[in-house]
Write a protein that binds this DNA or RNA. Structure first.
Lengths: 162, 162
DNA sequence: ATAGATGCAAATATTTTGCCGCCAG
DNA sequence: CTGGCGGCAAAATATTTGCATCTAT
């Protein structure tokens, strides 16, 4: 059996830690991308998010910090970050409609495991997953730059109570 | 135009292993779900599709068979099929905007491997993937009912020519 | 006969675009 | 200074819903 790591939050520099000053912000600076006031705010929201947010939620939080930020800017910034591979875009199997969710891209890929009944989403890392990606690279002659896995099912709790 | 839609597999990999037409129709009948004229058409389109279609494309094809079918019915039917686990919903990493694509759910899960440059999508099956899902079920106490993996990268061809 | 489907139109939701003034570098 | 960025409004897409009517079973 391969080694497993469930919900590991301390592999090196996992993000989403309030105390750490903008991991994302640094990344952008490194790439000499213009850092505007609005971008700073969106980055801050992403860096501090402890769960997956959709564009609307990101806008909400951003406006609490700086009410001037508009929806359009949020979309444009998300697009920027996405194209630089700094955030991932998920839809969590469309559990709650056709929204898209965003999370800052950690150092290691993880799988999103969602309960179709209670909606809880759990993150899962596995050596097996890394192996699978290597296999794909070899067998398909591919250089993988993004990988996304989303799994839906019923958690123990929901099976018992329903 | 006749309904001679032959299943062409562009990636060299086998796609829908259910060679018999009307696999979906049967499934619905088995579940004693009302089979209307419109549903038959949408099912036929899905069964004969050789590539992933979005809602608009499904509507187009359906209307070629029966012009009376409306967009709304397509959405409602897709929803029905989705909730019965008979089709999968993908977004192919939003390679071409935020559309959603649908494919009839074969007997075995496969991974979608897309080239971010040329856009070619290949399907990939692996025992490793099956193991990974088992691992998730065990470690998370989950009963998995849907699993979706989409991978993006650059294929050999594009790396060489780019 | 009747629960459930469809069609139509309109409402929602979500994301993108054109244009112009403004600001970070 | 200046080219990229943000704001505004409106457009383009995408999806859902209310309601009257029709139909598969």
């Amino acid at each position: 059996m391969a080694q497993t790591a469930v919900r590991r939050v301390s592999t090196g520099e996992r993000i989403n830690v309030h105390d750490k000053p903008g991991q994302l912000q640094k990344q952008l600076a490194n790439r000499s991308i213009r850092l505007t006031r609005q971008r700073r705010v969106v980055l801050q929201v992403m860096d501090n998010a402890s769960r997956h947010l959709d564009a609307g939620e990101i806008l909400e939080r951003a406006q609490k910090i700086d009410p001037q930020i508009t929806r359009v800017t949020v979309y444009r910034t998300l697009d920027l970050l996405k194209h630089h591979g700094l955030i991932d875009e998920l839809d969590l199997l469309h559990l709650r409609g056709h929204r898209h969710y965003y999370e800052s891209h950690g150092p290691r890929d993880h799988i999103h495991v969602a309960c179709l009944r209670c909606g809880k989403v759990r993150e899962f890392e596995s050596e097996l997953y890394e192996q699978l990606k290597k296999q794909i690279e070899q067998d398909c002659g591919m250089e993988i730059s993004v990988a996304r896995t989303e799994v839906g099912g019923y958690c123990k709790n929901c099976r018992d109570s329903g």
